[in-house]
Design a protein around this nucleic acid. Structure first.
Length: 548
RNA sequence: GCGAAAGUAGCUCAGCUGGUAGAGCAUAACGUUGCCAACGUUAGGGUCGUCGGUUCGAAUCCGAUCUUUCGCUCCA
């Protein structure tokens, strides 16, 4: 049962994470907090190294990408424009076919006997929806241009699928008496109160006081009215923690573009925490309410988005694989038409084969011009780009003003950390002091990701060896290389401990060091030792880190 | 959100049908050894997830609650 082994890999990684100090549960001494994790002494280093590598490859090594670090709390209008904040008191409904989300109380209500045509934006979309409905509900609607026909409302609670000119329904479905406003689709999810974002309040005034006096004064009103009144009070000071880092790049599009004189195509990158009240949290740090993202919005000329999507998909895939022991465990998967978000025209997920199967690690989405247009509309700002070199395709005149399309590689930093912990975990059989078989656990983290780059170990803690070792450590400290001095326990034990921590190089000071100034450097993965001059130790480690 | 299982030392776990907790590893000190999980001696560490109930007496039985894992559901 491969599955059993896979599950225990997860257990082993979780256990090692705690024992060695990669990941702890949040607030553990108080019983733990649901889905919140703390990154321990090694975890914080690993996470930072991973994120710094991302930043290096996305921002520092590119002329066409610039970075920002926006505040986690943003104006609530940002979330209105983006569609995240559709209204936290209004029941929302999703169209199962078009993914459109709307307010149930604003939806059109057909009369019994009315035809229920599904009106698409074009013929291609009609074909896609026709196929999606067939797949999901097993009925084939008749397509007439961009309209899908065959559905009729029976009463307020049900509708049916009718053959042409037939009065008896072939299939009946229950529904809530309304259809989606844009497409007219009756295939809808249940009504839900949506509050995926973490709401908080800005300003020191206690809103509860205002609410209390409002309720006292309005006791005769019914529940719905009171809720509305409370909402109005809350809304005045409500702010939301960002559910994704992306929106800041759209909101600061102009500032970034102008201050850095960026020309299309260019990107804005950001790393940081995001917060979502997830319905389900699962798989250790894979899905949690507080998580860390590494996102970049790459703005391109309309029409070129497909090429750029593929470019970034490949670029990002290459990056993930470059740090992995098992590059084969990564793959990408194109989103089906019916799983695309409403704003996207294409999307690839970069997936990793976790112990529970392939699952998302990064999404590379073609977000069209949806976000910039929405923010332009809501804010009144002119979120467009003027290219003097290009001709306007409509007028043929020189100079073209357009709203850029966006390609978004959005990676989960905390997911990446999990991926590399899983990828690094190895159990090996190696000979012990007597030449017998013994096992070792080694975290084969990429040297540039490893929390500690080197450990300096005196063979014994006397005869002047600790002093020499400490001199070497201090050279490493000055060079900014995270290094640890370690004299506890036998040398073999120290090697094994650093294997588990993923430290790539162990430098050992022994008796010979005093005679000829040489030390040994041990490679974590091969366990091979080489004798080098102690004065060169720093340079050797540096070179190996650069080459890795 | 629903269903199932679990929670005992830092970790992995034992503790049968109720009689106030143990092992291995880990940690600390000393001695000996000195290149791949050494040995000896000693020490520290647990109000058995939390709260409540039954009982002379609860890790053990009952209830609630929190957390974790798995499966379904959900996931802009």
């Amino acid at each position: 049962m491969g599955n059993n082994n896979e599950l225990s890999l997860m257990d082993k990684v979780i256990s090692l994470s705690k024992q060695r100090g990669f990941v702890f549960q949040s607030s553990e001494i108080y019983g733990g907090l649901k889905s919140a994790y703390d990154y321990g002494p090694l975890g914080v280093e690993l996470k930072r190294n991973l994120m710094n590598e991302w930043w290096r490859s996305m921002v520092h090594e590119r002329e066409d990408v610039t970075g920002i670090d926006a505040s986690i709390i943003m104006h609530s209008k940002v979330w209105q424009a983006s569609g995240h904040l559709a209204g936290f008191s209004d029941p929302l409904v999703d169209c199962l076919i078009s993914k459109e989300r709307f307010r149930a109380d604003k939806a059109p209500r057909p009369q019994p006997g009315d035809e229920l045509p599904i009106t698409c934006t074009d013929k291609g979309q009609a074909k896609d929806y026709q196929a999606a409905i067939l797949k999901r509900f097993n009925i084939e609607l008749r397509r007439k241009g961009k309209i899908l026909e065959g559905l009729k409302a029976i009463d307020d609670n049900s509708f049916g699928f009718f053959d042409k000119d037939s009065d008896s329904a072939k299939e009946t479905f229950s529904y809530s008496g309304y259809v989606s406003p844009t497409f007219g689709s009756p295939f809808l999810s249940d009504e839900r109160q949506f509050n995926l974002m973490f709401r908080s309040q800005i300003g020191p005034v206690d809103v509860l006081g205002e609410i209390t006096s409002y309720v006292e004064k309005n006791q005769e009103k019914d529940g719905k009215e009171i809720r509305k009144g409370i909402e109005d009070i809350v809304k005045k000071s409500a702010v939301y923690l960002r559910p994704e880092t992306a929106q800041a790049m759209f909101v600061q599009f102009l500032n970034c573009q102008q201050s850095m004189s960026m020309k299309i195509p260019f990107g804005i990158a950001q790393m940081g925490k995001s917060f979502r009240n997830e319905v389900t949290v699962e798989h250790f740090i894979f899905r949690s309410c507080e998580f860390e993202q590494m996102e970049m919005e790459y703005f391109v000329e309309p029409g070129t988005q497909k090429d750029w999507l593929e470019y970034w998909r490949d670029k990002r895939m290459e990056w993930w694989q470059s740090f992995a022991n098992n590059p084969d465990k990564f793959r990408y998967r194109s989103h089906e038409k019916d799983e695309l978000a409403h704003y996207a025209d294409a999307c690839y997920d970069i997936e990793y084969e976790y112990p529970w199967g392939f699952d998302e690690l990064e999404g590379v989405a073609s977000r069209t011009d949806y976000d910039l247009k929405k923010h332009a509309e809501h804010s009144g700002a002119k979120l467009s780009f003027f290219d003097q070199q290009k001709q306007d395709p409509e007028t043929g005149k020189n100079g073209w003003r357009y709203t850029p399309f966006v390609i978004e590689p959005a990676a989960g930093a905390t997911r990446g950390l999990l991926v590399y912990l899983l990828d690094a975990y190895h159990e090996e059989t190696v000979p012990d002091a007597e030449g017998n078989e013994s096992s070792r656990v080694v975290m084969k983290l990429h040297p540039r990701l490893a929390p500690m780059k080197a450990a300096v170990l005196p063979l014994v803690k006397k005869e002047g060896l600790p002093e020499i070792a400490r001199e070497i450590v201090s050279d490493f400290f000055k060079a900014g290389i995270n290094t640890r001095y370690d004299e506890q326990h036998s040398i073999g034990k120290r090697y094994r401990r650093h294997d588990e921590a993923g430290t790539p190089y162990c430098i050992t000071v022994d008796g010979q060091t005093k005679e000829d100034g040489t030390v040994t450097i041990r490679d974590r993965d091969t366990m091979h030792q080489e004798r080098i001059s102690k004065d060169q130790a720093l340079q050797v480690v540096r070179n190996r880190l650069m080459e890795s």
